[in-house]
């Protein structure tokens, strides 16, 4: 096996990087891929919480790099999916605990172990971000349909271009089709007009995401969730399948129906 190494980053914080990593990892594992996620947000770890693996942590990524444990010992196996592993971040250290070359070496060791390595990048464009993208074959940039998030994504894409990290692909997260329709939110077209990169998925706003994250069971498990479906589609695209985009109009049709039913329209 030679894994594809994919880093998920954004520039701005709070746009859903960690949620995207957790959901893509689950969705890829559901498709039968062997997946290892690395939490690159050293000092502010939370991928473990979202995956519901917090209480299983013994060793973390810094322990691996500093040689206190073997790689396999730091790989926590998921409760439900035997092909999904997490290498958690250290909580008591900071971004300077690892370097880009150590990250590249770690990723190299993982390549033969699995099909996908997903790296969760911290927010910002400083050292933690540099470490997270150092070993990546491909970078996914997550943004929200908000001007500030899109500006930061643009900056990050510029840095990725200058680092020759190949063309980044975009995940547009938390899109609310009703707000787009009433022109109160940037549309996917507005975002792509500025960023001009490949779109790999649009994830609609869905309160199930928050509920699922708090429960430690990502929404990608839920067959009925639209956001879950969107993440499963992105996972399929990462595996090389061609999947049509979710029909957002159909969804706003559903929204309209719901609003009519509840007497809001």
């Amino acid at each position: 096996m030679t894994a594809k190494v994919i880093t998920i980053t954004s520039g701005k914080g709070g746009v859903g990087k960690t949620t995207a990593v957790a959901n893509l990892a689950v969705a890829l594992a559901l498709e039968g891929s062997k997946v290892v996620c690395i939490d690159g947000d050293i000092g502010l770890r939370n991928l473990d919480v979202i995956l519901g693996l917090e209480n299983r942590i013994v060793y973390d990524v810094v322990d691996v790099i500093e040689g206190r444990c073997r790689l396999k010992q730091a790989m926590i196996r998921d409760k439900k999916l035997p092909e999904l592993y997490l290498i958690p971040a250290a909580q008591t250290r900071d971004k300077n605990a690892i370097s880009a070359s150590e990250m590249i070496r770690l990723v190299k060791d993982l390549r033969s172990e699995c099909d996908f390595v997903l790296i969760d990048s911290p927010a910002g464009i400083e050292r933690g971000f540099r470490n997270a993208i150092a070993g990546a074959d491909r970078v996914l940039v997550v943004t929200n349909p908000e001007i500030s998030a899109v500006r930061d994504a643009d900056r990050v894409i510029g840095i990725l271009e200058s680092e020759e990290k190949g063309p980044a692909a975009l995940i547009l997260n938390r899109l609310n089709p009703a707000l787009v329709k009433s022109k109160d939110m940037l549309s996917p077209e507005d975002v792509l007009d500025l960023l001009a990169i490949e779109l790999i998925g649009i994830v609609p706003e869905d309160e199930n995401v928050i509920i699922a994250s708090n429960r430690g069971a990502p929404v990608a498990y839920e067959p009925k969730s639209r956001a879950g479906q969107a993440f499963r589609n992105i996972a399929k695209r990462l595996r090389g399948e061609t999947v049509p985009f979710l029909d957002l109009d159909a969804q706003s049709g559903l929204w309209n129906r719901l609003q009519r039913l509840t007497g809001r329209k």
């Binding site: 500006r151 930061d152 643009d154 900056r155 894409i157 510029g158 840095i159 271009e161 001009a196």
Partner: peptide
């Protein structure tokens, strides 16, 4: 002559 898009931060 710049044959590219100038992104934020440039």
């Amino acid at each position: 002559f710049l044959n590219r898009t100038l992104r934020s931060g440039t």
